[in-house]
Design a binder for these strands. Structure first.
Length: 467
RNA sequence: GGCCCCAUCGUCUAAUGGCUAGGACACCGCUCUUUCAAGGCGGCGGCGGGGGUUCGAAUCCCCCUGGGGCCA
């Protein structure tokens, strides 16, 4: 029986959880679940100025929305400052780290290159001293990355580095090692941008004689311009995708397959299946472009797979917020609208536009539609249709269809000659759900009202044109 | 600038030395259909370049080029 797998996601609460961070968290989560291990959350809030509780809450909300639940109490770096300092002093005692001082003239240097010189702390009482880690000049530091294989660095290229700043705050590389050791992390799964931090961290592990975890460096996620993903590429926070109506299952699926593939040709893979199949060794090495089109396609697939009732529940807030659905009656109608639109929607917010005419009068008719379907003689056809619809007792899909088709036959025209103008009259548009089901949802009175309105509109237009 | 990583259709990817390099998104046709969407069928389109190794290379090695990251 091997040791329990423990992984962590360690965001800084200085910004939103973006898709890059989300995928890192997601791979950690998948790996932990696959291995029957633990997924932990650590908040790296030592940058006090830029960190906020608010951002921390956003990050947690986004993670939970995606289904990335963590297993133990959250670890906060800011609570552990004394511990870092203690371990740093231990390294000094061992002669593996030293105090250093940066003279004021160094700080004035422009363009970096600021030096911090080793000093005897006894002679620099009261001066701000940093602590630097001593890196041997000889040899190499290497590791076997689960994703990338063997990676080696010459120690002389690494050079001494600061582990505790003069203000007493530990640097990233130092805090990470102390925390990962303390948390019993067995596998460090993080972005490729940390590869060059890894040898520094390994040197620290070795200095303490701590067990070195396994490393897996994930490829970056790029924007459509192949540049690093940033605010310029639209939605920056995972929660913005939620607000647009991306389902968490869809984003999960999409992100999981961005850099990893189960090996078969499937694109839609349920979460439990992913947990079973996930394998870090199958994660790709090259950076991946975030393809919004594909995300939207996956989302539409998930929307289609869900029950009408669930989509109703999920989509309702969108149409309510847009002011379309206000009353209990509206909600009942929207419940009937959902099955008609479910297969035509990519994002939940698409319900707003696509269902508008179910809740609002038709004010304008699609221009191209008018040219195409509101032609000579159309008023007469619509007038006859109104007459027959008025005589219908049961205004259901089948009855409406029978009326329309019978009328077409009597007039010796194709059903399309009635269907298209009617759609335009009733919805103002040239596309949408099947006409008969749509009319049934709209109801007899409303359909007749709209048809009459269109007839009037046509007559007025004719008069204007005619003279 | 130094170090490190990466390189298959426009995009996400499959291929673990061996069938005409497979699938998906997007795009374009055709089909189904009352429209749209979905579906079905088909098309477009790729191993960055050059050297090796091998009977045989997308796959292994080297160089170049091009991206990217970290540090300075």
């Amino acid at each position: 029986m091997s040791k329990e797998v423990r992984v962590r996601f360690a965001p800084s609460p200085t910004g939103y959880l973006h898709v890059g961070g989300a995928r890192t968290a997601l791979y950690n989560w998948l790996f932990a679940r696959n291995q029957g291990g633990k997924f932990l959350l650590r908040i790296e809030n030592t940058d006090v100025k830029r960190s906020s509780k608010e951002m921390e809450e956003y990050i947690k909300e986004a993670m939970l929305w995606l289904g990335l639940n963590w297993d133990e109490d959250i670890v906060y770096q800011l609570d552990r400052l004394e511990i870092y300092r203690k371990f740093a002093r231990e390294l000094i005692e061992k002669g593996l780290a030293y105090y250093c001082y940066t003279p004021p003239e160094e700080l004035k240097k422009e363009g970096g290159g600021v030096e911090c010189f080793e000093v005897d702390p006894a002679k620099y009482q009261g001066k701000p001293l940093a602590i630097k880690f001593r890196v041997p000049n000889e040899g190499t530091t290497e590791f076997d990355d689960i994703i990338r294989g063997h990676i080696s660095f010459r120690n002389k290229d690494i050079g001494d580095f600061v582990i505790v700043r003069s203000d007493g705050i530990p640097t990233y590389n130092f805090a990470v090692v102390v925390d990962d050791h303390y948390m019993g992390i067995t596998h460090v799964i993080r972005g490729e941008d940390h590869i060059s931090n890894t040898p520094k961290q390994i040197l620290i592990y070795q200095a303490f004689d701590w067990e070195i975890p396994e490393f897996a460096h994930l490829p970056m996620i790029l924007g459509p311009d192949k540049k690093r993903l940033s605010k310029r590429h639209g939605a920056t926070s995972v929660l913005e995708y939620r607000d647009e109506g991306i389902l968490p299952e869809a984003l999960f699926n999409f992100l999981a397959l961005l850099g990893w593939s189960p090996g078969d040709n499937r694109e839609i893979v349920p979460k439990d299946e992913m947990i079973k199949l996930f394998d870090l060794r199958r994660v790709g090495k090259r950076a991946a472009v975030f393809d919004l089109d594909k995300l939207h396609w996956i989302n539409s697939e998930y929307i289609r797979m869900k029950a009408d009732e669930e989509i109703y529940r999920l989509a309702l807030p969108y149409v309510e917020k847009a002011g379309l659905v206000k009353t209990e009656e509206d909600r009942e109608r929207f419940r009937k609208v959902v099955p008609l639109l479910k297969e035509r929607v990519r994002l939940l917010k698409d319900f707003i536009d696509l269902s508008e005419y179910f809740f609002k009068d038709v004010e304008t008719y699609d221009e191209k539609g008018v040219k195409k379907h509101f032609k000579e003689g159309v008023e007469e056809r619509l007038r006859l249709l109104v007459e027959r619809l008025e005589n219908l007792d049961s205004f259901d899909e089948k009855s409406i269809e029978n009326v329309v088709r019978a009328l077409a036959e009597e007039l010796g025209v194709s059903a399309a000659k009635i269907i298209h103008p009617t759609r335009l009259a009733v919805t103002g548009r040239t596309f949408g759900p099947g006409l008969f089901e749509l009319m049934a949802v709209l109801g007899k009175d409303e359909c007749i009202k709209r048809l009459k309105k269109a007839i009037t509109w046509l007559e007025e237009r004719k008069r204007e044109k005619g003279g």
